[in-house]
Design a protein around this nucleic acid. Structure first.
Length: 415
RNA sequence: GUGCCUAUGGUGUAAUGGUUAACACUCGAGCUUGUGGAGCUCGCUAUCCCGGUUCGAGUCCGGGUAGGCACCCCA
């Protein structure tokens, strides 16, 4: 890279989506949308810009997160603005704003891009896309279970088997009751959560020692003692035919707003043991905007971890452009006729690209191959004169002839 | 914020401190004036920056810069 040239790399920690990657992202989004809609969820959308106080207000300890780990700047009008680092506050804001007019249970989803300012590493970039699925206005355990069912159905829709992932459930409720029973300070309660969260990363000795320091007996957190709320949700999941869900006391989730059953889904592949998806119940998310708490539950799933999950299992689809036909012309002089033919096909909803005849026919076909367009339609003197156009299937090399009236239906009937 | 690793054509790699920095792919031209993936020929393009050691540095040292990974934190 020469120093005097403008570098072509993308900004640190963000990705360029070349057509292949964009097609993949579109596929992920389409599958997510399909599953969410099948469960009765409707899509919403919002700007990536939010006033910074939306994130500050969530709790004193998060103000550091806003200043250190978000893209925050002052706009020309002196307002402090943040590129959204997560969707939940935006969602809470939107729901709270129309709280009275919305019907419940409210089922919403969105696939936003989110930004965080921090050093990137494997699976964690500065911009990523994340499906958010949320249900508001119900305290039923069926709502908790439904959210998990959506997550389960999603992974299944991408081709995963139950043996590919494990759904681990925990309970904030249960943790809070332990803290209350032992009269733990808020600080210690938070420490306990943090410790549980890190349990898989530290040695058992270290865990035991630290948990004793806080004053919690390790037996209180046995996986055998399934809290009542978790048990109820597990029962519903089992009845729904989901067999890979278990209670795990170390599932706590990082954020303060969770209040009930929380869950994370883990890849069972030993090389990829990090959580790929998580969520849970939050019963007072809208309290910032409104006195009355509005119960809800939801989860988020990022595109990066999902891709890693699908990639190691060979479940990513092959790239195929939307373009179905590439029109090659024998000579430039035939462009008017070729162009007219392209228009005819487009009117019939066939995706057509046309070569402008600036190179040899062989090179035009090479270009179709390079762009992964499956069919070449050749326009030459003979074709026009006889109304029999050559269509070459680039996958098989076979050629067939069609009249201009037959072309559109031929392409449309291909699968 | 801390630590570790890396930096050579467009891409991926090679080069005991020693000639003109090599190879593959890509790209461009041609062999081939209406038929792709193969082959052959020719061509374009590189040692991140600044300094030091040395007769001599892509190679060793220092400092920058950039990137990756791990920790911290986790949305």
């Amino acid at each position: 890279m020469k120093k005097d040239k403008l570098p072509t790399e993308s900004y640190k920690g963000v990705r360029d989506f070349y057509p292949e990657e964009q097609a993949l992202l579109a596929y992920l989004a389409a599958t997510m949308r399909g599953v969410a809609e099948r469960f009765g969820y409707v899509e919403y959308h919002a700007s990536i810009l939010e006033p910074s106080e939306l994130y500050r207000a969530k709790g004193a300890e998060n103000s550091e997160m806003v200043s250190d780990q978000t893209y925050t700047f002052v706009d020309r009008g002196g307002r402090e603005v943040t590129l959204r680092p997560e969707m939940t506050p935006t969602l809470a804001r939107m729901v709270a704003a129309r709280r009275r007019e919305l019907g419940y249970p409210l089922r919403w989803f969105s696939i936003p891009n989110l930004f965080r300012y921090e050093r990137s590493q494997r699976g964690r970039l500065r911009e990523h896309w994340q499906l958010n699925v949320d249900i508001f206005g119900s305290r039923s355990a069926y709502a908790d279970a439904e959210i998990i069912q959506v997550a389960h159905a999603l992974l299944t829709a991408f081709g995963a088997q139950e043996s590919d992932f494990t759904i681990k459930l925990g309970s904030r409720n249960f943790l809070d009751s332990v803290a209350k029973e032992l009269h733990l300070s808020d600080d210690d309660a938070k420490k306990l959560r943090n410790l549980l969260d890190r349990r898989a990363k530290i040695s058992e000795d270290e865990f035991t020692r630290d948990i004793n320091d806080i004053g919690v007996a390790i037996e209180m957190l046995s996986p055998e003692k399934v809290p009542a709320d978790v048990k109820e949700v597990l029962g519903i999941l089992t009845a729904a035919g989901i067999t890979n869900a278990v209670f795990d006391p170390s599932i706590v989730r990082g954020f303060d707003y969770y209040t009930g059953v929380v869950f994370e889904i883990f890849d069972t592949h030993p090389d990829n043991s990090r959580a790929m998806l998580g969520g849970g119940r939050y019963d007072n998310l809208t309290q910032l905007f409104d006195e009355e708490p509005l119960p809800g539950a939801g989860f988020g799933m990022g595109d990066v971890t999902l891709k890693d999950f699908l990639a190691v299992r060979g479940m990513l689809p092959e790239y195929a452009p939307a373009t179905k036909v590439y029109i090659a012309v024998a000579t430039k002089e035939l462009l008017p006729q070729a162009s007219e033919l392209a228009q005819l096909l487009r009117k019939e909803n066939v995706a057509v690209a046309i070569d402008f005849g600036e190179r040899k026919l062989g090179d035009q076909i090479k270009m179709a191959v390079k762009h992964r367009v499956p069919y070449v339609l050749i326009v030459g003197e003979d074709e026009i004169a006889s109304n029999a156009y050559t269509v070459r299937d680039l996958a098989t090399g076979e050629e067939q002839k069609f009249s201009r009236e037959e072309l559109a239906s031929y392409f449309l009937n291909l699968t």
